[in-house]
């Protein structure tokens, strides 16, 4: 599929238009769900960790440190991409599957359009462009959720902020972005593959959609581990 994608676009304008449509769909369409999940993930992590810290000798500012690093390194990229695998992955697979079954892909081919390039490439590029900013927003919202939950738990805001600045390693942001790009690529390619090669009817579109979510989720956690091993 990726090999078939490599060709000169019939119309750069149409490909760009489709990429922007996909960026809007993946990015803007997922912002609210990613925002809510990230905010509460940060908040819950803060409450749980504050509970663990209470009565111990660890300084309370460690809470900010832990929330920051766990959101940046792990929770923001992995959790957000698992959500995206469910929301965007199933959508990509079912959209392409429906186009296959209803002969829309055949129509493109008969017109002389490289259907793989026109339908798949914009989705992959859009995911690569829009997922990293989504993950950055997710990390910020997670930390903010953690801050509000920590203050609500009785930890001083200054303490939390001190922890946020404590031993900050910019390389962690690099790890987060590497994960974002890798996961975005995996979700888009796996989902497009499942949808593009659907055969049969409506039932098979549902199955392809499920396979897209399952396979991309498994690959996300697998590559999460591999990146952790390689980069830390």
């Amino acid at each position: 599929m990726l090999k078939q994608m490599i060709s000169v676009p019939e119309s750069a304008y149409m490909y760009w238009k489709e990429t922007v449509r996909q960026m809007n769909h993946i990015g803007v369409g997922s912002l609210i769900i990613i925002g809510i999940i990230s905010f509460f993930t940060g908040a819950v992590t803060a409450v749980q960790f504050a509970y663990q810290l209470s009565g111990s000798y660890f300084p309370p500012y460690l809470l900010g440190f832990v929330i920051r690093d766990s959101m940046i390194i792990e929770l923001a990229p992995t959790l957000s991409c698992l959500v995206l695998a469910g929301k965007v992955g199933s959508n990509m697979a079912s959209e392409l599957g429906t186009m296959r079954i209803s002969e829309q892909i055949d129509a493109l081919e008969v017109m002389g359009v490289n259907s793989t390039a026109y339908l798949v490439a914009p989705k992959i590029f859009a995911a690569l462009i829009i997922v990293p900013p989504l993950i950055i927003i997710s990390a910020f919202l997670g930390v903010y959720g953690g801050l509000l939950a920590a203050v609500n738990y009785g930890i001083a805001q200054e303490m939390f902020e001190k922890g946020l600045l404590y031993m900050f390693d910019p390389f962690n942001v690099v790890i987060m972005l590497v994960k974002a790009y890798v996961f975005a690529f995996l979700i888009a390619t796996v989902s497009c593959y499942q949808g593009f090669y659907v055969k049969g009817g409506a039932l098979d579109i549902g199955k392809a959609s499920t396979r897209a979510v399952v396979f991309s989720s498994i690959l996300v956690v697998l590559f999460d581990y591999l990146i952790a091993v390689v980069m830390t």
Binding site: E10, S11, Y13, M14, R21, T98, M99, S102, E103, Q104, D106, A107, M111, G112, V113
Partner: peptide
């Protein structure tokens, strides 16, 4: 095509315009 194979995400006008925009 038998089922017309119109692009669902496009209006009637955009469907007819599509080959012109492409080629």
């Amino acid at each position: 095509f038998q089922g017309s194979a119109l692009f669902d995400s496009m209006t009637v006008e955009e469907n007819v315009l599509f080959p012109l925009n492409m080629f």
